[in-house]
């Protein structure tokens, strides 16, 4: 099945783009499995995993949430900037 992945902040540097469509996700995959699938293509993503927030269809989600065809899965690293 096809899912759309949205990447934010420094993840964009790792992947080189802000959106990416993956078309070979097996049905029943969780958000975590989708992340690992992406991280196989971009190993630089791996070390971010524990720091990330994941959202499925604009809603804060658990990593074990199953994704459905056409879902939008977004990964957000924390961002600290503001003063300096």
């Amino acid at each position: 099945m096809v899912v759309k992945i949205c990447l934010f902040a420094s993840l964009r540097d790792v992947v080189g783009q802000s959106e990416i469509v993956i078309d070979s996700v097996p049905p029943g995959n969780t958000a975590l499995q989708v992340f690992h699938r992406l991280a196989r293509r971009f190993p630089g993503l791996r070390r971010y995993r524990k720091a990330l927030l994941v959202a499925v269809n604009q809603e804060y989600s658990d990593w074990d949430q199953e994704v459905s065809p056409g879902d939008e899965i977004a990964f957000f690293p924390p961002v600290s900037g503001g003063a300096a």
Partner: peptide, 25 residues
């Protein structure tokens, strides 16, 4: 509730390292 654990030091770049559009803030 969003980020229960902080990122490991150095994982996420600061504005001093990553830059920021002056208008953004």
């Amino acid at each position: 509730c969003l980020y229960p654990e902080p990122p490991p030091p150095g994982l996420v770049p600061s504005c001093a390292e990553g830059g920021v559009l002056g208008i953004l803030p």
